[in-house]
Amino acid sequence: MKDLVKRLTSISSPSGFEDEIREAIKSEVKDYCDEIRVDALGNLIAVRRGTGPKIQFAAHMDEIGMIATDIDEKGFVRFSNVGGVSPHRLFGQRVRFTNGVVGTIGMEKLDDIKELNLDKLFIDIGATSRESAQELISIGDCATYLHGFDDLGQRIVAKAMDDRIGCAVLIEAMRRTEQCQSEVYCTFTVQEEVGLRGAATSAFGIDPDLGIAIDVTGTGDTPESRRMAVSLGKGTAIKVKDQSVIAHPKVKQLLVDLAERNGVPYQLEVLTAGGTDSGAIHLTRDGVRSGVISIPSRYIHCPSEMVDMIDVEASVKLVSLVMSADISEALQ
């Protein structure tokens, strides 16, 4: 499982540029589904045939990043954000463009750190002129954090844990689930970080009866953190509400009942800032009952996001239980 997470987090695939991660996930899941397809926007949909209602699981495979907007005469690259990248986390970071070019982020002279915004930052790719920079990258090329995976024992840390850990959970659950009662659509979505876009179109195409997103959520267990009753290591998190969705009461209950009956450790989650793919799925067509299984994560959208293997394992178990459960109660 850790190897899988390492493989997935090492790939640079910011929103809109998910080719590499899609190919990697395709090779991980192809032996564990009956059908695999890619839709017009690039969502990867792996189908497990069944006779019951249709469940869509969604884990987004894109990650936040940076996009080159201008190259100056000395070869410095100005950039804008792709998704929720904060300037305070960027200075001094090493980044990698999707074509492999590596750079580091520098900052203009500031009188006060409060003046810091993305306009004051630039990427230095080691070029000596505009021309030499243009041989390496073009306007519109995208980069991501360049940070390795580290195994800290019970906990692991990497960039893009949001939401490669969700992808890993979904892949592992597919592998472990022998019989599905429902028809299961495992969707690895694109462009979540820029507005749940892949989830919206994939859900319209699939037209599911039930939607479950698998994504990271925040925690309140670090020094002087924002108050939140979710901690690392206390189990998978069953979402009640975030800014994008209020979990359908029967779907939330389905997840709680499955966790309780099978001894899966879980926490209930109210996330006051942030959203996830279920936000788009539940508003599809005439409405889809939806919920979210979250993996608690520290330092979300930083270059080093940390999760706990206890929570990862619990999330895999819960996803697998939903795949093999009779979900008719939640649809009544």
């Binding site: 309140g220 108050r227 939140m228 009753a229 009640v240 509400k241 209020i246 109210v270 006051t272």
Partner: peptide, 16 residues
């Protein structure tokens, strides 16, 4: 409102 934390004798909350 929605409950965000139950601690000691008090209920913490956020808005809906």
């Amino acid at each position: 409102l929605i409950v965000t934390e139950v601690k000691d004798q008090f209920v913490r909350f956020d808005s809906v």
